[in-house]
Amino acid sequence: MWKWLHPYANPEVSYHFTGKILPWLGALATLFLSIGIIWALAFAPADYQQGDSFRIFYVHVPAASLSMGIYFGMAIAAFTSMVWQFKLADASAAAMAPVGAIFTAIALITGAAWGKPMWGTWWIWDARLTSELILLFLYLGVIALHNAFEDKNLAGKAAGILTLVGVINLPIIKYSVEWWNTLHQGSTVSKLGKPSMSIDMLWPFVFCFIGFALLVATIICIRFRSEILTRNSIRPWVRTLVSEHLSKHIAQEKNNAI
């Protein structure tokens, strides 16, 4: 079952493969994001209740769901690396952590900027916000652990353990805060009646969401490639690649000088 995956488990192959798809990912991300953001800012209708502040939605919601999604991906990578001793999985987890942290921070900041005019406060200790904040702490812990070990392989394993412990912790925290502070008492405190999101608001959201997802994929790809290089720095293919790259660089500088 895993056989077809095997060629991609080779660091060299995946380095070159990600190098090939990277420009396409980047171009698609730019396309979707520019359409989505312009549509969201200038053309989407304002919400009947929240007015134009509703436009924050187009950054906030994709960032929040991607921050969770990236953590989930990181946990899967940690699990694969632990069970199947799959070194590339560690590299991908290391590539995901900073991206996830930044998107969690974006979700928190945009959430606060939206909450201030709408709820009347920058911050509420409710289930979603608190668990998102803990998610940020977990990301920071994982990053700190990655940096604390000199040996990247060990760092990957240690961070993997923390990631998996965090996965169990996240739903507990979400649930615990729901009990402790019941501002989000689901159906009872929400408005009555159920009009779904109107279609001319939904389309820009779809574009924004796909655009952000592609952007995340692009950045993870870039970081993943650097991680592969650091972890395989003694391999001959990395050596030749580096020397080729450097000689090209030197030639370019000479050209510039002339």
């Binding site: 209708p45 304002a46 919400d47 009947y48 501002l183 929400s190 009009p195 608001m201």
Partner: peptide, 24 residues
């Protein structure tokens, strides 16, 4: 000492809200 309002997960443009008779 504090009054908090929760927003719901439903969004719509003002015209639609008018049609639905929402007070906004």
């Amino acid at each position: 000492s504090e009054v908090l309002a929760k927003h719901d997960e439903n969004y719509m443009p003002a015209e639609l809200a008018d049609a639905a008779g929402k007070d906004y």
